[in-house]
Design a protein around this nucleic acid. Structure first.
Lengths: 145, 145
DNA sequence: ATCATAAATGCAACAGGGTTGCAAATATTA
DNA sequence: TAATATTTGCAACCCTGTTGCATTTATGAT
């Protein structure tokens, strides 16, 4: 029985997705695998730059390919900044809690929507302003193109 | 029994929220009330400009005050563009379906998350890439400030 | 190993959403 | 109607994310 972190190991992940084994991709995977919250591009750049700089365009392109291959999941926020988490470590899909002031995002256990409501009906540390459920994909028209 | 559109009527909405009755606010409310999908700021500006131009800063500020007062609900998208819907016309909170190509957003009936899964497990016109559940608000630390 | 080809990366410049400071215009209250 | 507080417009700006093109790096066949 492998742990989620082993299953997500960089070179296997890239091989399974049919992506070439570049040092850039491995570095970004390494950061995502060891993150304990979903990361933004600026979070990733900051971590990369501690060791060796990487161009932001490269980061965007790598994340874009990871997203297409289903390696990572993208989470939009109110502030227009997307965050990313490893799909294999964060299964199944689960709610995220986001503070609109300090912009901290944390993962919740994978429960149903009505359970989310129940959870926050009780007195809690977190004051909810808004709950969003978004289903993103391709509409019928755009699938044909 | 009033219809949702009557309940949302502009001058009452502003009065209840304690906001002054400016023509700008009424124009934006009018557009939101008559929208059949959640609108982005550029959607709103485009509609406004057909009649008489309004500065985009004003639109952002008005939407921001509406959001603080709970008059409208904000829905983030993968593309970093927020969309807005009248809270009183769109109760309770419900999922949104968003096409990542044409960027069309539509409202779904207010069902639970597991029902959403069931709905899309069956053959469907819409191909799901990603489901996001986000709870936005204030964490304990930021509530104190 | 080495070479040719395809893919990945860096750089500069750009596009668009959203924000801030300040001056001018408008609404509210007395 | 005048005084004050609020709202609006304008210019300039910040940040996220994208595009085109030149350069570098990985891959696959010889």
């Amino acid at each position: 029985m492998k742990t989620a972190r082993e299953q997500c190991e960089a070179s296997n992940t890239l091989k399974n997705a049919g992506l070439s084994q570049t040092s850039h991709r491995k570095r970004i995977l390494h950061i995502l695998i060891h993150a304990d919250t979903p990361l933004s591009v600026s979070d990733i750049l900051r971590q990369l730059d501690q060791e060796r700089k990487m161009n932001k365009v490269t980061v965007y392109r790598i994340l874009s390919s990871f997203k297409s291959e289903g390696i990572i999941r993208e989470i939009p926020t109110d502030h227009g900044v997307n965050r990313y988490e490893m799909a294999c470590q964060h299964n199944p899909v689960h709610p995220h809690v986001y503070c609109r002031i300090c912009r901290t995002m944390t993962c919740m256990p994978p429960i149903t929507l009505s359970q989310v409501w129940d959870l926050f009906a009780a007195p809690s540390d977190f004051r909810i302003d808004n709950i969003n459920v978004s289903i993103t994909g391709l509409c019928r028209t755009c699938q044909r193109k």
